[in-house]
Write a protein that binds this DNA or RNA. Structure first.
Length: 445
RNA sequence: GCGACGGUAGCUCAGUUUGGUAGAGCCCUCGGUUGUGGUCCGAGUGGUCGUGGGUUCGAGUCCCAUCCGUCGCCCCA
């Protein structure tokens, strides 16, 4: 019988158990951070009906959607009625429109689930990946203060994740569109093109971008691309003295966001104004965010989002403005592991392995394990008889930090031997105090 | 969808120039060590050389086709 090659489909992240522990730890940290700011959990199905999912899509999005179809429907040649979500924001819009009467506004929700994009896999571009979103949806109105809270939450989470240096880049699309209008760019298609080119500024350089633009557009490019501190950039924008309404409004919002961030106590190191980021052109209408890690300069954003004034407009007549931001957890994890900022090989969930040295003492081993578990320690018994060296090797490879050994010598003394594998420390302790001893050896490392 | 590069052991790769018995390191298993993992030493398992066809006495190696993968473009976390 011929074997089928065991192979994960391209563009997915599949982890070994110890890596999975490390990844779960990261998700736990993000979840704790989101809850610390009072966001509520929501989950939605991985698939939506195609009419819900594709309302918003331009041609690009639709090309990346995976359709879901039953075998029966396939055989009847019917068009798929379901498709996999490609982000969590569109499902959120549907969710809010559908459950509007049962929700409390402003509605603060977090959602950490997998999304799917049918594009060609590349480095740190996955076809299945986790997004960890927070969004706030207002009823009729949503003050700009919420735009400032988003990056404050992210700064808190990234500091908890210990990712090293990071910078949340801030911009405002009203400001950008207003400035474009002042140089005569008012056609949506042209605006989109200029913004897309602007977005590439860091990547391909000023001259390459300017070559695709008119001279007036290029002058604007130089204004937007000029570096400087937060206050310098704001000052420069004010000096323009533009009375173009979108420019005034955008500048005022951006100023409020900066003031809010400072009031929240976010370090100046962790945010900056960057007038060249434009974000996806679909639904953002005001503030936009993109976050970059100092440790991974060449790689893209690991966390981005923005303000949208009319997201749910396809599903309801209610006005439901929102602002949200999303951590790309799969990409973030793989980058942090590559950069050595987190240990990709986590510990086992077992804290202690009770070995079987003497088959006659099996009942004692089980009883000791029960005692340790009752004391709150994750405990595993090596149920398969084997040489003690092999049992230790098992603990070492599985990432179990502590090993318990008891032979008839120890038993006669009412004691057990505990060995901490990483340090090699080994102690004989009284059976009566084994849980406390184990705990202190785990803490000592 | 477009472009570049690449497919040889579970993994990383050498071998291709000049056709001549399929290799190394790591991993894994066992042993050295009958109460001690990780280090060290020894042995062993593991391959239709991506697939199909062609040239040849003989193809991992040369020719043609094809599939798949990686990276980049577009777009995006």
């Amino acid at each position: 019988m011929s074997l089928i090659a065991p192979k994960t489909p391209p563009g997915v992240m599949e982890l070994l158990p110890r890596q999975q522990v490390a990844f779960q730890g990261m998700l736990d940290t993000i979840r704790r951070g989101y809850e610390r700011f009072g966001f509520l959990p929501v989950e939605t199905p991985v698939f939506e009906t195609t009419d819900v999912l594709l309302t918003k899509s331009g041609g690009e999005t639709e090309k990346q959607v995976y359709f879901v179809q039953s075998t029966g429907a396939l055989q009847q040649n019917r068009r798929p009625e379901l498709a996999l979500r490609f982000d969590l924001t569109v499902p959120l819009a549907r969710y809010v429109a559908e459950h509007e009467r049962d929700l409390v506004f402003p509605f603060r929700r977090y959602q950490m689930q997998r999304v799917y994009r049918g594009e060609r896999a590349q480095k740190s571009r996955y076809r299945e990946f986790y997004q960890c979103d927070i969004d706030v949806i207002g009823k009729d109105t949503l003050p700009v203060a919420f735009d400032a809270e988003m990056p404050a939450v992210i700064a808190h989470v990234f500091n908890e994740l210990k990712v090293g240096g990071f910078a949340i880049n801030l911009n405002n699309r009203k400001l950008l569109l207003g400035l474009l209008a002042t140089v005569g760019v008012t056609l949506p298609e042209r605006q989109a093109l200029v913004l897309r080119e602007l977005d590439k500024l860091d990547k391909v350089g000023r001259d390459a971008v300017a070559a695709t633009l008119s001279s007036e557009e290029a002058r604007l490019l130089d204004l937007l691309g000029e570096a400087g501190s937060t206050d310098e950039v704001l000052g420069r924008l004010r000096q323009l003295g533009s009375d173009q309404p979108q420019v005034r409004e955008g500048l005022q919002e951006l100023t409020q966001v900066v003031e809010g961030l400072r009031a929240f106590g976010v370090s100046e190191q962790n945010f900056r104004l960057n007038l060249t980021i434009a974000r996806g052109l679909d639904y953002y209408t005001g503030t936009v965010y993109e976050t970059f890690l100092d440790a991974c300069p060449g790689l893209g954003s690991v966390c981005s989002g923005g303000r949208y004034d009319n997201l749910a407009s396809h599903y309801t007549k209610s006005k439901l403005p929102g602002v949200g931001i999303s951590i790309g957890a799969t990409r973030l994890f793989s980058q942090l592991v590559d950069a050595g900022l987190i240990d990709g090989a986590g510990r086992s969930t077992s804290q202690i392995l009770v070995t079987q040295l003497d088959p006659a003492l099996t009942a004692d081993y089980f009883a000791i394990a029960t005692t340790l578990r009752a004391a709150g320690l994750n405990t595993e018994v090596h149920l398969e008889p084997a040489k003690i060296g092999k049992q230790m090797k098992y603990a070492d490879r599985a990432g179990i930090p502590l090993v318990l050994v008891m032979g008839d010598q120890e038993k006669a003394r009412g004691a057990v031997t505990l060995k901490h594998l990483a340090s090699g420390n080994q102690r004989e302790v009284s059976l009566a105090t084994v849980a406390d001893a184990a705990r202190s050896m785990l803490e000592a490392g």
